[in-house]
Amino acid sequence: MTGGQVILIVEDNARNLKLARDILNHVGYRTLEAETAEDGLALARAERPDLVLMDVQLPGMDGVEALGRLKTDPLTADIPVVALTAFAMRDDRDRLLAVGFDAYLEKPLNVREFPGQVDAVLRRADVGSRT
């Protein structure tokens, strides 16, 4: 079902990165990992993953800025980017969706639903690119 799609995880906390990676790998996705926005951008350009999971609070360049770079770069503009944040307040959600994230996931992740949520974004993007 997941057909070996590639997901780039940008997350500075090593354990959280491992959690997301292990779950995604478990359900069949391939994953790429970056602990900073800069590394993430480089990987995204080089590998052109199917989806980017972006932690919003990153050291140095934050997730919002990284999103802007991804969306303005023709190489990566059509890759859906999902925000991951521990600031789970409603205004954050609205703010993040408003700046152009394709979806929003709050920490702690709901392990059971997480694969389905990622899948839903991928499918939506897929439909979008075909029309």
């Binding site: 354990r15 959690l19 292990d22 521990a86 600031f87 709901n110």
Partner: peptide, 23 residues
Amino acid sequence: SHELRTPLNAVIGFSDVLLERMF
């Protein structure tokens, strides 16, 4: 709260991974 949520993500997440019998 942000600092506390970050490790909690791992605590709850890995617990769930185990409870889901993923491995």
